[in-house]
Amino acid sequence: MERKKYILSFPSEIVEIPITHTFMSRFGLWTNILRAKIEPSSGGKLVIELRGEGDMIESAVRYAEAEGVTVRPLEHDVAVSRELCVDCGACVSICPSQALSLDPCTFRLVFEPDKCVVCGSCAEVCPVAAIRVDF
């Protein structure tokens, strides 16, 4: 059993296709929608966690891509720039899912993408604009 988080981008033409339902029914995946903003006129994005057998997750991703959805692992679209980050920790207590912490030995910022829910709070409070959240 594997768990993976992806950000799915839907162009407006395919918002009618029941992608999430197909993930469950055809690929037997357990799905959890963490965040979604999709408009019929302009498309949009969906943050989803998929749980299931590794090859089924891969097949599901290939299926979605074949339908015209852009699928990116969450860590591609949420990133902390090591060059800009000063390891102050301002983001740590703002994160609702404990995805950001300071390493107890080095006190440098640690980002755990599997805990991230792509809320964007960290990017908003980062004083040096070191966190990028594309959603």
């Binding site: 000063v86 300071l102 006190f107």
Partner: peptide, 21 residues
């Protein structure tokens, strides 16, 4: 330590000052 107990509640802490720096 990352959290402080205030009146029975665990409150997560953030430094604004970089200890690594």
């Amino acid at each position: 330590s990352g959290s402080v107990s205030v009146g029975g509640c665990e409150v997560p802490t953030s430094s604004l000052s970089s200890y690594a720096k």
